[in-house]
Design a protein around this nucleic acid. Structure first.
Ligand SMILES: [Mn+2]
Ligand SMILES: [Mn+2]
Ligand SMILES: [Zn+2]
Ligand SMILES: [Zn+2]
Lengths: 158, 158
DNA sequence: ATAGTATTGATAATCATTTTCATTAATGGT
DNA sequence: ACCATTAATGAAAATGATTATCAATACTAT
C-alpha cells in the first residue's frame, strides 16, 4: 500500500491511477447513462484536487469553468455513481457528505477533528475481525463504516 | 460481556443497569442544568423500550403521556446530554440520528439493512488495532465510528 | 437531420435540525 | 411559603442539505 500526499496537503491518500476522459465516458456508458458534458466535467473535477469533496465544494469548483452546471445535476449524478459503486460516500458525523472516486483498494479514514485532514488507511486485520463479528451474530456482512477521529500531529502541538 | 434481548426484539444489547429517577436528577444537576419535569420524562422514556431511538420516535412516545413536551426541548436536551457524554449519538448513513443512554461499556453496532435490527458488540482487538493505526500516522485518537451493515439471519432467508 | 427519450437546471418541496422569542417554571435566598 | 432572578420551554420560523418537479434542451440511434 503506497501512500501519497493529497494535492491540498490535507489528505494522505492511497495511490490512485490517473483516469482519462475516454475512461470517464466508458464509466458513464457502463452505468447505462448518456454521455453529457456535465457528467464528464463532474468526473474531471473529482479526479483533480481534493479527493474527498462535498457537493458544495464541487459546485463552486465547477462554477469557475462551467457555470452552467446546476446543483441538481451534481446531486443526481453523484447518486448514480454511488449506486454503481464508482463513487464512495463518506459521512463524518452530521457534516455534509463527502464523495470520492472509488479507488481499487478499499480503505477507511482517519480524520483530524481540528483541521479536517484526512488520512486513508487499510488494515486487513480489522477487516477480518469485522467478518468474524458478523459471523458470530449470523449476519451476512455487506458493508461497514469505520471512521477514526483524532488530532493530527500538527494540531496536537497547538 | 453479557448480551440481552432488547424489548422490541429488534435489538441485542449489552447489559445495562436500570436507572432510577433520583439518578436521572443527579445526572441533570451534574451537567449544571435545572431539573425540569420535561428532562426527567425524556430520560425515563429513553430508559424504557428501544435503546436506540430517534427524536421523532421519542417525541411520539412522549406525546402519549406528556403531550406538552415539544420537539425543541428534546433536541436541546439530547444535545446537552451528548456533549456531556451521557447520551451517544449513532448515525447510520443518511438516516436520522439515533440516541442511546451511554452505557458503561463501550460498544459498536451491527445493523440489519433490511429490518433495522441492531446488535451491540464489543471487540477489544479491533479497538487496539484502531489505536495502532492512529499511532502509525501520529494522530491522537479521540473517537471512532464503527458500524457494520448486513443482513440478519431472519432477513437472509427471505 | 430527425424523432424519441433522457437529461438538465431553476425552483419548489422535503426532512432533520437549530434558532428565535415571548411565556413559564425552577431555584436560591428571604 | 414568597419573591426575584434567570434558565427553560414550546410554537413557529429559519436553516441547511438533499430530493422532486417540470418545461426546455441535448444525446443518440436511425
Ligand atoms: Mn478515501
Ligand atoms: Mn448501542
Ligand atoms: Zn489537524
Ligand atoms: Zn433483518
Amino acid at each position: 500500500m503506497k501512500l501519497i500526499k493529497g494535492k491540498e496537503n490535507k489528505e494522505v491518500l492511497i495511490e490512485r491511477e490517473p483516469i482519462d476522459v475516454e475512461t470517464f465516458k466508458r464509466m458513464i456508458r457502463q452505468m447505462g447513462l448518456k454521455v453529457t458534458k456535465q457528467r464528464v466535467h463532474i468526473l474531471e473535477a473529482m479526479s483533480e484536487g481534493r479527493a474527498h469533496i462535498t457537493v458544495q465544494e464541487l459546485y463552486e469548483k465547477l462554477q469557475k469553468t462551467h457555470p452552467e452546471i446546476g446543483f441538481a445535476t451534481i446531486y443526481r449524478f453523484l447518486k448514480n455513481m454511488t449506486d454503481h459503486n464508482l463513487v464512495t460516500e463518506v459521512r463524518m458525523g452530521g457534516f455534509p457528505a463527502r464523495y470520492e472516486l472509488t479507488p481499487n483498494q478499499h480503505h477507511d479514514h482517519l480524520n483530524c477533528t481540528n483541521c479536517g485532514k484526512i488520512v486513508e488507511f487499510e488494515n486487513e486485520s480489522i477487516e477480518e475481525l469485522q467478518e468474524s463479528v458478523a459471523r458470530k451474530f449470523n449476519f451476512k456482512l455487506t458493508g461497514h463504516v469505520l471512521e477514526l477521529y483524532g488530532l493530527c500531529q500538527d494540531c496536537q502541538q497547538e
